[in-house]
Amino acid sequence: MKKLIKVIIFITVIAFITRPALAVDATPSGNSDILDQLASKAAQLTQGFRRVYTGEIKSVGTTSYTVTTNSGDKLVTTNDATSFFRYRANKHTEINFSALKNGDDLAAIGTIDPQTGEMTAKQIIAKVHRYNIVGLVQSRTDMVFTIKETSGKISKVDLSGLTTNPASIKNGDFIGVIAYVSDPNSDTLTSLRVVDFTK
C-alpha cells in the first residue's frame, strides 16, 4: 500500500511539472488581453482629450492669442501651418493672424499640450458666438420674447430680424432659438433662427 501511495504522489508531481507545457497557449492570449486593455485605455484618453478651444480673445501676442474659454484662459499659439478663416453670413473667407482682435469670438482646432493646456492651432475660425436657448415662452413684448430655459435661466430674445414670422408663437410654447449678442450693453439677444416644437 505504501508503495502505491508513493507512486501516485510521484506521478501527480510529474503531471503538475509538465502542466505549464499544456498551458503555453494561454500566455499569448493573456498578453493579448493586456494589449487590448492598453489600446482601449489609450483610445479613451485620446477621445476624451479636448481638441477645440472656443471663446473670446482676451489678448493678442506676437503669434498667439489668449482665449477666455468655459474652462478658463487658454493660450493658443499659431505658426506657418495655421490657417485662419472668418465665418459670416453663411460663408467663410480666408483671413490672417492680424485680422483678429481682442473681443473676437473664435474656435481653435489643434493639439493640446496635456501638461500646460497650451494649444498649437491647426485652424482658427472667427465667428460670432451663437447661443442656444431651449425652453418655454413666458411672455412677449412686441417681438421680444422672454424664455424660461430648462435650467431655469430666463433669457430675452428679439425675434424681429427673422425671415420666418414668429406671430404664431404664443405663451407656453416650447421653442428653440439660436441667437447672438448684437449689443453688449443690452440683455436682449438677437435671434438668427427659431423653431416652435409645440407645433
Binding site: V52, F85, Y87, A107, K127, Y131, V134, G176
Partner: peptide
C-alpha cells in the same frame, strides 16, 4: 462651418 452648439433636451 465653425462652432456649433447642439442642445439635446
Amino acid at each position: 462651418e465653425g462652432e456649433n452648439i447642439i442642445s439635446v433636451t
